[in-house]
Structures are given as structure tokens and as C-alpha cells.
């Protein structure tokens, strides 16, 4: 089963992501910010990571950088959740090390497809 870690400081978003992905048979783990995400990664090797950008403690950019720094997760696909679809945001996400992006608010099908796209 595909395993995904979703990192978002918004409880609403976490619940929507979890319900959507679990509905598609994806084992979904949640973390409430980048720091928490790194803690979860100590115990979990997900097939993909979904992360928000604006978060307390450790934001999305810092989180991605830290994930890419760990040898165990150097090539794990990371999808960034962003409210802006602007090109410079994609560029920034990519510069930080993200694999892809999902524009919020997303429709559930798109989220599932994006995850499947990077996990096969």
C-alpha cells in the first residue's frame, strides 16, 4: 500500500487530505508542521510527502530542505500545497527541492492523481 505523509498546520486541510487519500486506499499519516513532519519521518518512510508552505516552527521550504538532506529521503517525491498557482511559486517550490505541487483548494481527484503520479 502506498504510504503518504501529509504536513499541514491547518486541521481542516489535514482532515480533507486524509479523507481524500484514505478514500483512495492510500495509507496517510499526518503532521502539523515541518518540525513535526521530521519527527514522523524518524519512524516512517513514506512513498511520498505532501507539505504546506506556510507553517509555524519549520515552514515548507525548510522542511523540504531537511528532507532532502536526509539520506533516507533524498529522492522521496515531495508535493507542495500552495494557494497560488503563479509560476514563480512553482519555481520556488522546485528550487527548494519539491517534486510537484498541488494548488489549493484542490479537487480530491487531482490530489489522488498527483500522489499516484509521483508514487506510480
Amino acid at each position: 500500500m502506498t504510504t503518504v505523509l501529509a504536513v499541514d498546520d491547518s486541521r481542516t486541510m489535514r482532515e480533507i487530505i486524509a479523507l481524500t487519500l484514505r478514500g483512495a486506499g492510500i495509507d496517510t499519516h499526518l503532521a502539523k508542521d515541518g518540525q513535526h513532519g521530521l519527527e514522523v519521518l524518524e519512524e516512517l518512510a513514506p512513498d511520498a510527502i505532501i507539505t504546506d508552505i506556510n507553517m509555524p516552527r519549520l515552514d515548507g521550504y525548510g522542511f523540504i530542505a531537511a528532507v532532502r538532506d536526509r539520506s533516507q529521503s533524498r529522492t522521496v517525491p515531495i508535493l507542495v500545497l500552495t494557494t497560488e498557482s503563479a509560476d514563480d511559486l512553482k519555481a520556488r517550490a522546485r528550487a527548494a527541492g519539491a517534486t510537484g505541487w498541488i494548488v489549493k483548494p484542490f479537487d480530491p481527484g487531482k490530489l489522488v492523481r498527483a500522489v499516484q503520479m509521483v508514487t506510480g
Binding site: 489535514r14 486524509a18 495509507d27 496517510t28 499519516h29 503532521a31 502539523k32 514522523v40 519512524e43 518512510a45
Partner: peptide, 15 residues
Amino acid sequence: RPEAHLPQASTAAPV
């Protein structure tokens, strides 16, 4: 990538 997942309940990690 390490495929063997460490023991972890299939439910959400505590938030």
C-alpha cells in the same frame, strides 16, 4: 529508498 516501513500503526500519526 528504504521500503521496509518501521513499525507504525496504519492510522494517522498523532497530531
